[in-house]
Design a protein around this nucleic acid. Structure first.
Length: 402
DNA sequence: GCGATCAGGT
DNA sequence: CACACCTGATCGC
């Protein structure tokens, strides 16, 4: 869960993913994605009132985030204050103090964060340097090197600070299977079940949050079917998602929800209560997407685990693993890194110290011992980040997970 | 009546 | 396998 207070050191007149307390005075707001823990204060009457008196304060986000936000009636009042921005399109924003008229210009670029529909990172370029606020993200190793706006020609841009989704910045979460590997495991399980008969159905036991949609689109594509969900409302302007979901219960793949869904499942019923038209009882398995991780030396086991007679857990992660975060950071080599999440069982001090080792000065200092200066050039070409850097992290390496 | 916060659940 | 969010109880205004 994000514990970011909302403001960055370099550009403290704007707020990101927090809208309460000191953030009420900000000149501009940014929402990285539509998850509640990044929306604190966003529907508070006090903020709503402040907006009505302002001519310049706006909320910036992606088009998809805007759509998901406004779909919720509690946030619909934002309509006239939202500015949706295209991905990968640098946009100049004026940060205006409405009392004094004082003004600061900043360039913002939205980068797809692959966390949930509409999720983005914000790259800010201005008088206080380049700063990257990652929001929540899932990048695989190497992904960062393919983002045009983090480069200038063939060089990596000089990044002053990264405000990082450090959810899994802990050696316990050393490795998490890639999305493709997880999807393949889930597909195989689904295929083996629903191919047995038309009465064999799968219930995807997903949480009430955006982020499982790529599972629906991939399974829908693979099995040429639609997935049953509670509501299509939020996707009504997103045809590429809409075509894979349905409110028609006559399908073999369900991701519908109900407060008593677990009870229903124990009684061999789907959350939607769907029955076969001829009265034949349905054969249901549940698949619960969950984070599964592996230690540095752990031999990879199955991405699908049987947890009961008809219950399975399948690997699924919204966030980058420790290894993926190290790849990301060692490529960008920022001057500073600030964690926005403290992993369970760790302290801010601990995480900050571990992240300091990934900052530019630390890495360059260490690398100088082994490399001639010429090798320190920071370029776009993919480099073997783990082999060419010393690995001071052994101090923190946790015992094998599980 | 409303919002903030916490405990307990999945 | 630990994420994101729901429900219900309690408190303060």
């Amino acid at each position: 869960m994000s514990s970011f207070a909302g403001r960055m050191k370099e550009y403290s007149t704007m707020s990101l993913d927090r809208f309460d307390r000191e953030n009420l005075h900000s000149r501009a707001y940014f929402l990285s994605h539509c998850h509640k823990d990044h929306m604190k204060g966003l529907k508070a009457p006090i903020l709503r009132r402040k907006l009505q008196f302002s001519r310049t304060v706006r909320l910036y986000c992606s088009f998809v985030t805007k759509e998901l936000l406004l779909n919720n009636p509690k946030y619909a009042f934002w309509e006239e204050y939202i500015v949706a921005l295209e991905l990968e399109s640098p946009t100049q924003i004026s940060l205006v103090d409405e009392a004094s008229g004082e003004k600061e210009e900043i360039l913002v670029t939205l980068l797809a964060a692959a966390h949930c529909p509409g999720s983005v990172m914000f790259l800010f370029e201005g008088s206080q340097g380049n700063v990257l606020y990652t929001g929540d993200f899932r990048f695989a190793a190497g992904d960062v090197s393919r983002i045009e706006h983090l480069h200038s020609g063939s060089r990596v841009k000089d990044i002053q600070s990264i405000y990082l989704d450090s959810t899994f910045y802990d050696p316990r979460f050393f490795q998490i299977p890639t999305r493709d590997v997880c999807l393949d495991g889930i597909s195989e399980l689904v295929r083996n079940w629903i191919s047995q008969s038309a009465y064999h159905v799968v219930w995807l036991n997903c949480k009430a949050a955006y982020g499982y949609e790529y599972l629906f689109t991939n399974l829908g594509e693979e099995f040429n079917t639609q997935i049953h969900v509670n509501s299509l409302e939020m996707f009504k302007k997103m045809p590429e998602l809409l075509s894979y979901v349905t409110t028609d219960r006559r399908t073999q793949i369900h991701a519908c929800r109900h407060p008593k869904a677990e009870e229903f499942f124990q009684g061999s019923r789907l959350p939607c209560g769907c029955r076969a038209s001829d009265g034949t009882p349905l054969q249901i398995i549940s698949i619960k997407p969950s984070t599964m991780w592996f230690g540095e030396r752990t031999r990879k086991t199955n991405v699908v685990i049987k947890t009961g007679a008809s219950s399975f857990r399948a690997c699924f992660s919204f966030h980058s693993s420790y290894l993926e975060l190290k790849d990301f950071l060692s490529y960008l080599q920022p001057v500073n890194i600030y964690p926005s999440v403290i992993p369970l069982g760790r302290t801010l001090t601990e995480v900050t110290q571990m992240l300091m080792l990934m900052c530019r000065n630390q890495s360059d200092q260490a690398a100088t011992v082994y490399k001639p200066l010429g090798a320190l050039k920071r370029c776009m070409v993919k480099r073997p980040t783990y082999e060419c850097r010393p690995r001071p992290f052994s101090l923190f390496d946790a015992p094998e997970a599980q």
